[in-house]
Nucleic acid binder design. Structure first.
Lengths: 125, 125
DNA sequence: GCATCGTTCAACCTCTGGGTTGAATATCAA
DNA sequence: TTGATATTCAACCCAGAGGTTGAACGATGC
């Protein structure tokens, strides 16, 4: 039925980043403000296609557009990437916490086994 | 013409992460190995849909599957996320390096202006 | 005014993503 | 064997992504 679930910030940021053209654009922009045409120049695709990519990046708030006469100057905005970084850090913290807990548990068992050496079914490790 | 450009690792990882269901799956998995059905249980969608999400995560090598009888046990694999983190760090380093350079330049100009106070056209800031 | 430049809008195409349902496959339990 | 359980495969639907081309539109420069 395809509910109209509004995609959240992480969705849009990650989606925007999941394309090599758009990552290249960001890379270029992190070196400084750039016009649309200039930005499109190195790519083997129409200007229109690049324009669309830029809109995706804007939607994700990864780039900001400043109009100056007929030129549109794009610049990189790092904040959404910070949010992604935070999510990933939390995720990895979770993960390593669990590994640590597992490790603690194993050491606990080892100690228990050592103090009761009659136990036959030893864990292989 | 739709060239068959094979998507690289970053593409697949970021694409896999750009969906709330899949992020939730990873979150669950970072707490430990889980069966497919158990994993699907909290979601308001068919088991099949979740199965597809899992395949996307596998393609991105974010989860690993271990068969045990008829059960498939999924576990989280953090490496691809490390790669993403590295890319983002590089990106942000780039960005702040440029800001720093800009800042240095401005201070340089300020010093020049101070040592030649006759200059009329002062930068407004 | 008029041509040109920088950019987007609109329409279209094809491929993929996320979802469905129904059937197939493999394992377990009796 | 037979039936239940865990999971995928296959076919389909619809919306959206990524690309194209052609036209429109607002600044700029004679």
């Amino acid at each position: 039925m395809r509910m109209p679930t509004t995609p959240n910030h992480l969705d849009q940021t990650l989606l925007a980043l999941a394309d090599p053209t758009r990552r290249a654009i960001l890379q270029r922009l992190s070196a400084g403000e750039t016009r649309v045409t200039e930005l499109a120049q190195p790519f083997a695709m129409s200007l229109n296609a690049v324009s669309k990519h830029i809109r995706v990046l804007e939607r994700a708030k990864l780039v900001h557009r400043r109009r100056e006469g007929r030129e549109h100057l794009l610049s990189f905005t790092p904040k959404p990437m910070d949010d992604v970084a935070r999510w990933m850090d939390a995720q990895r913290a979770n993960w390593s916490a669990r590994l640590q807990a597992l490790d603690d548990l194993l050491q606990e068992e080892d100690r228990a086994a050592a103090s009761a050496p009659a136990d036959k079914k030893g864990r292989t490790r």
